[in-house]
Nucleic acid binder design. Structure first.
Lengths: 209, 209
DNA sequence: TCGTATGTTGTACTGCAATTACAAACCAGT
DNA sequence: ACTGGTTTGTAATTGCAGTACAACATACGA
């Protein structure tokens, strides 16, 4: 696995949609060759095989996410605000790259069995959240919870599943607007919960139960 | 795909761990034959191939989850309480069957490409939650949110990712205790959120609900 | 200009594993 | 014992990933 020339790298993206659609199994190396215009022999010259194609595409996605989230997280705001920004950032990248997301979901199993990717996955998705939750307790902007690990995981799940689903359901014409909208819903859930009682803004106009 | 005899069905579970460990790709039909004691030819007589093995195992898991959640959901309590019960139920089944869960995560892509399973997945995980959120708004036990679909998805993600991760991380000696513990954390997140306090001009917290 | 190193690509080949074919048992139930 | 479903061993058959390799291209320094 040398470091693949830029031109080939960009051509390789032509395979993303194919893989997203049919899964890696359902995609022959020949198909990838045809879709990208890179001959099979050349693919094998640079990459170690089919998995490596997926690995290349996904590690790129994960880097983008980790990067965007990283920026969001390193502002000077309090942890709560940064978490909100991180949600927007993550969803933004995901909705920007629906095919890569679909490929990721579709071959999640393979991805988690590729050691590099497993790490990148953790780094992109889970670790920033875990950190923010800890920061939030420290700076008082988030509540202390009894089981931070489990909660971080749930928050991660809430964001990621919503984002993945949105990405899978159909590319939109304005991804970043969608990201903002979606992340507003998610943040509301994460911060304020669903219970009727501790409510913000207005008091429950309805009757007491 | 006739309905496979009970004896074979039970033997087939012997393949779950194998598939969980190595993924369906990494598992040869011969391996499955050996692990289950069912000869290859017999497997092919009853099932349509490797995918069908996975499909059988997973649809069973999903039925169990849908069943347990269904019971939890149909009690006479308010929606919030039922949602809490549903979380416990779902996590209970998941932690009870770690290998199947691992197989599910690992081959999620295949699963979602198997139409029957995709439906079962929806029915087991997502639909009950969606319903409960609506019920909760109706009976006043849950808050009205602007985008119920996205929120239901996030709640689903929060529960499922936490459960899946717990299942993947290692079988425990007391799954149902773990399920209760874990679901307490998740419910707390879902209902009360992470904000330090209900923000932005709150109804007096003391005034009883 | 040549030589060497490095990348590119076509073509043929190897090998593995899924699936299929098939025939020989093996059971009921009648 | 006959029949119709099941069970299983033993070959094929097939499709595709990965490999081998030779011919060609390009660059670059001597």
């Amino acid at each position: 696995m040398r470091k693949l020339p830029a031109k080939l790298a960009s051509q390789l993206y032509g395979a993303a949609e194919l893989i997203a659609e049919r899964g890696l199994d359902g995609t022959k190396i020949e198909d990838i060759a045809e879709a990208t215009g890179i001959p099979k022999a050349t693919i094998y010259y640079h990459l170690d095989g089919k998995n490596a194609v997926l690995e290349f595409l996904l590690s790129d996605l994960l880097d983008m996410i980790a990067g965007a989230v990283g920026v969001a997280v390193s502002s000077a705001e309090d942890a709560r605000t940064r978490l909100e920004a991180a949600v927007v950032a993550q969803l933004g990248v995901m909705l920007e790259h629906p095919f890569l997301c679909r490929a990721l979901v579709g071959d999640l199993g393979r991805a988690t069995r590729l050691p590099e990717l497993a790490l990148a996955l953790r780094a992109a998705f889970y670790e920033p959240i875990e950190q923010l939750l800890a920061d939030g307790v420290a700076d008082g902007s988030l509540r202390q919870v009894p089981n931070p690990g489990a909660v971080a995981l749930s928050v991660f799940g809430a964001i990621t599943v919503a984002g993945l689903t949105a990405a899978v359901e159909g590319p939109s014409d304005d991804p970043s607007a969608d990201a903002v909208r979606l992340s507003a819903s998610i943040s509301e859930l994460i911060f304020d919960g669903l219970a009727t009682r501790p409510r913000r803004g207005d008091c429950e106009p309805g009757d007491g139960a």
